[in-house]
Computed example of a mutant assay.
Amino acid sequence: MAKYPRVREQNIAVFGEAGSGKTVLVSSFYGPTQEGSYVNDLWDLVARQTGQGHRLYQNFLGMRDNATVPIQTRFDNTTYEFSVKLKAGDEPEGKKRPFDELRLAWHDYPGEWFTDDPSSLEERDRRTDTFISLLRSDVALLLVDGQKLLDYAGEEERYLKSLLGNFRQNLLRLKDDLLAENGPLVEFPRIWILALSKADLIPDWDVSTFRDLVILKASEDLERLRSAIAELIETPEALSIGEDFILLSSAKFELKPGGQDPVEIDVRQRVGLDLILPIASLLPLERRVLWEQRMAIPRKVVDSLADGADVIAAALTGAKFVNVEKLLNKFIKADKRAEFVAKALPMLAAAVAMAGPKLREINEEARAHNDYLRAMLTQFKLDLDQGVSDKVIRTQK
């Protein structure tokens, strides 16, 4: 068995009603990385299923070359699997990097299941099984459709209450099945980001405008959703809902001059999609540190919360790989949580604290030495910081 873990997989679950743009988002996430003109000096994005990759790239080319939007999928639960393959090369002085490949599983939950009742017991079971498959994710995106906000301008609460209420009801319908075997769930998405899809339709909004609208118009509905999720999980204190927001746009959609149809689609003008990999990779690590600093989290919850955080932290800081999970098990078994907080948690906190000129300096140094893993992760962190500065993303601190 290899001494170091070689592959690190992150999972992200995407929820949105039918027509909210989920297929367009994933196509625009993947498509630009396949163009002949695309250049990335650190890594390549590869679809792990060839046919799936071809379909996504075909969707993207249809938007780019023919101004056609992908056909809306109905009742399809799909997991898109990607590999972020690092360029060849190792750290100087023969040090072995903690892992060589980052994988992303993008779970797409069918939008129709928000609003339509199951037509049979078989379909109900399929919905439950699909939802269970999402539970590996630390991060979930709940899409708020920008077009719907425009349609309900001045009375946005009608749409937001319906969206959040339908999702809450969907969870309540699944509750008994989800809790039937072992009671409150240990593994469950703990970070729920509200994402404004089709953000290009409201170009004068930044992420604070979006957040303020949601809180003004639907704060009680958001709290009811949070309470419904809290009833499903163990240690509900380790849960973020209504604290993280992002703007997402797959492209800029415009009507051609002098007509209503077809639509001109500028795929070069994307918003937020370059933050998906940084969010999936680093946000769970940051949130785990925050929660462990604030509360005593039970061991079995910690084991499922941002698992692999030690590997990410080691790669990000360039420190010698230390198995934080082993330290955690050792200290908790010996009833020495305080010792864990003193000795192991700082390893994770140091990675989270990297910022500013020092972070940029580390990134440049990693690039210069062909330390592709550290360069990629520090670039992810720089991208997140830039997203905050550009008011595209707002996260809990």
Rank of each mutant, 00 (worst) to 15 (best):
R211F: 07
V311F: 06
P357S: 02
Q72T: 13
D44N: 12
A375M: 10
S389H: 01
P110Q: 01
D206M: 08
G387R: 00
S137L: 09
L201S: 13
D303N: 08
L172H: 03
E122K: 14
S227K: 14
D383E: 14
L196T: 04
A280D: 07
A230P: 10
L359G: 01
A355N: 10
L213G: 00
F340M: 13
V39K: 11
P262R: 00
V7E: 14
R367S: 04
K333P: 00
A338K: 13
D261F: 12
N59Y: 12
A342E: 15
V392F: 00
V144R: 05
L359V: 05
P184Q: 05
S83Y: 04
I279Q: 00
F321T: 12
A218Q: 13
S219C: 01
A319C: 08
E181H: 07
T235I: 01
G259N: 04
Q72V: 11
D390W: 00
T23E: 08
K217D: 10
T73H: 06
T73S: 11
N182C: 10
Q386L: 13
E122T: 13
I362F: 07
R294T: 10
L141W: 14
S281H: 02
L135W: 03
A355P: 00
L61P: 01
D221V: 01
G146L: 07
S227M: 12
V14R: 03
E243C: 06
A375I: 10
E234F: 06
R6D: 14
Y152H: 10
V324K: 07
L160E: 04
E223Q: 09
K330N: 10
L277F: 14
D335H: 06
Q52A: 12
I246L: 12
G62V: 02
T78E: 12
L273K: 04
T68M: 15
L149P: 03
T317D: 01
I265Y: 05
R294L: 14
G146E: 06
K85E: 14
A349S: 10
R394K: 15
E223V: 05
M376Q: 09
I332V: 15
D117L: 15
I229C: 09
Q379Y: 08
L248Q: 05
E220I: 00
E234Y: 06
P32N: 00
E220M: 01
I362H: 07
A47M: 02
M63A: 10
R168W: 10
Q34M: 12
R48E: 15
S281M: 13
L86R: 04
D335R: 07
Q269E: 14
A195E: 11
D266Q: 09
I393K: 00
L25H: 01
Q10I: 12
D206I: 04
W113C: 02
A280L: 11
I297Y: 05
D176C: 00
G356R: 05
F380N: 03
P110I: 04
A309R: 03
E157L: 09
Y80F: 15
R190T: 11
V7D: 09
F60L: 09
P32I: 03
R270Y: 07
R294M: 13
E91T: 12
V7G: 02
A67M: 11
A338Y: 06
E123I: 15
I191C: 07
A238V: 15
R158E: 15
A344Y: 06
R374L: 06
E81A: 12
D307I: 03
R124F: 15
G36T: 03
L285G: 04
G318S: 08
